[in-house]
Design a binder for these strands. Structure first.
Lengths: 341, 341
DNA sequence: TTGTAGGCGTTATCAA
DNA sequence: TTGATAACGCCTACAA
């Protein structure tokens, strides 16, 4: 740095008071301060454009003003909008967010968490990979405030903010059923340990049993979203399996995108050849004729609520873990509506 | 925190050496350290799961290991992918990124920058709003390493990583011209002070002069992307203005999305009623029949290069500012290809 | 090869 | 109403 930043000592000497008084001023404790000194201090601070050093503050006070956020994939709209919700909320309350991207890699997740803690973040908002539960619980036991965003832990032993996955999945399958589709392909990435995928998968099976009276497993397709060709093949096979109106449900936005690509590759017409539904309304779903039926998640609000809960917990870490489930919205469009009778 | 974290003192006492030695160990200066003490220290550190406090480190050494990143809108794929590029690159080199979202608001931009500096970030990567040039230059003069990502400053007085906007815009208009479109609407948000918008706008005008021999201003439409209805009206007016094949160019991804929505609202057929091109290939452009012609920007790489340049500059802040222009790609799809002769 | 001591910029506890 | 002074956890001359 060319020009060295002014420190509290410099302010003190120019204002002709001790640094204790400056510190009081900085922390808004004017109770016993004469108006005169207060004004003098303010003048000096403005003059120097003095700003306290947060590292020093944090070191002394154990309050860094930093909140760590881990997301699985910042490149996906879900994560980035969630991050925005967190950021806006934290800013308003005097916190800065440090964001790290785990790429769904449990090892990266651990490394980043360690590093965030080294930077003395006051709390953590985690979109978990699902493979570090024990590690997270240790941290909790060490007293670090943690909120789990979007993907719950199986045990729910941490504060969790998510959306009503089971309900919406069921409702969507029922919608397809009521529209007269006679079978539904469930298109998903490997479940890995991702709890939302798991819940959606299980709910799908349940809906198949209760509505179609079948074991849904035969309609489940595990795919790699980047390999549209294979997906197209699988889809073809699904369609040829039986006659009658068929539909598909994509487990998340990335998968839905692949699904629509595969449909285009096969030159299928929605909903006649295949009814289409799935997770994540990312702006383009309405544009693809005849409009894709999607479940729109409250990502921004998940971010906001996670941040609020975390900040609460930073102030008082005693409360029992709480589960907050925010509602998603099923947006029905042409791709799942059969106009034939 | 329930269990207090171990400090360097604790490690020192358990390892029966002074904290100087521990500090040496932590910083990898084993040159004059006996193998035995080294092992002993390692054992104690593992045993305690000791990790140094970054705040204390940064306070003393003036190296926080933090890099600040400001983006205009983290919710847009452009920003979030850029952020990912920055994050990946920084992580590999031992830096953490603090990300802040300015919402294109110059005041927020200033506030965030101040706050990042309070946290002693070692450098800044900024997707500038374009209205804080003086402020940024002051910071530069104070010795803070800064890289401008995507949106250049008019004066180029800072390191800049961006893409070849002028070239790609010109090439796209020429493509439309060569396809026999007789006029081109330029759909844009308010330029504000956003340099990329400005450059694209100016290039459009230039292309109009050189190719069509007209003043392109009459074909420029300033729109609010969230107001699809108005855009549809304007588009209608543009189409009715004259006969002959007409096309449109959207200045960025957000605008392109609105444009396509408006086209759907008006029930226009691409490319017969309107040829469509524009910035940002965000995954869905290929899905909308007949496929939308887009310019795909190297966002990830802009992030990577920005980070690399910044880290270089953190090490040596003397070099003259450099402009790095990365190539974008024009992806021609059905929306701009006239198959009639 | 290792240790002593002082300081980084704050905050907090006393005492005045 | 204000000020000395001692931390916070680490790094680094300098000394041994």
């Amino acid at each position: 740095m060319a020009t060295d930043k002014p420190t509290i000592d410099k302010v003190a000497s120019l204002a002709k008071v001790s640094k204790t008084t400056i510190s009081r001023y900085l922390n808004g404790r004017f109770e016993f301060m004469s108006d005169e000194t207060r004004k003098r201090i303010r003048a000096v601070i403005e003059e120097l454009d003095y700003r306290p050093n947060n590292l020093a503050r944090g070191l002394k006070s154990n309050r860094s003003g930093l909140i760590g956020v881990l997301v699985a994939d910042i490149g996906s709209p879900f994560s980035s909008i969630l991050v925005k919700g967190v950021g806006d909320t934290c800013k308003d309350r005097g916190y800065q967010t440090i964001i790290a991207n785990t790429d769904n890699d449990p090892q990266k997740e651990r490394e980043y968490i360690r590093s965030l803690i080294d930077n003395r973040v006051e709390g953590l908002i985690v979109n978990i990979t699902g493979q570090n539960d024990d590690f997270l619980l240790e941290l909790k036991d060490e007293g670090i405030p943690i909120v789990v965003a979007d993907r719950p832990m199986e045990t729910l032993s941490l504060d969790t903010v998510t959306s009503n996955n089971a309900e919406m999945t069921y409702r969507t399958i029922r919608h397809l059923y009521e529209q007269g589709f006679e079978r539904v392909a469930f298109i998903t990435q490997q479940i890995s340990q991702v709890r939302t995928r798991y819940v959606r998968h299980q709910t799908f099976l349940k809906a198949c049993r209760e509505l179609y009276g079948v074991d849904g497993e035969k309609w489940v397709y595990f795919i790699d979203p980047s390999d549209v060709g294979s997906l197209a093949q699988e889809l073809q096979a699904f369609l040829e399996m039986e006659d009658g109106p068929a539909a598909a449900f994509a487990v998340n936005g990335v998968t839905l995108l692949s699904l629509v690509k595969a449909i285009r590759e096969l030159d299928l017409v929605m909903p006649d050849d295949l009814g289409v539904t799935g997770y994540d309304d990312w702006g383009w779903a309405s544009l693809i004729p005849p409009g894709i039926t999607t479940i729109s998640q409250p990502s921004y609000n998940v971010g906001v609520q996670s941040a609020l809960r975390l900040i609460q917990r930073i102030k008082d870490n005693r409360p029992k873990p709480k589960l907050i489930e925010l509602p998603s919205e099923l947006i029905v469009r042409g791709s799942s509506v059969r106009n034939v009778k």
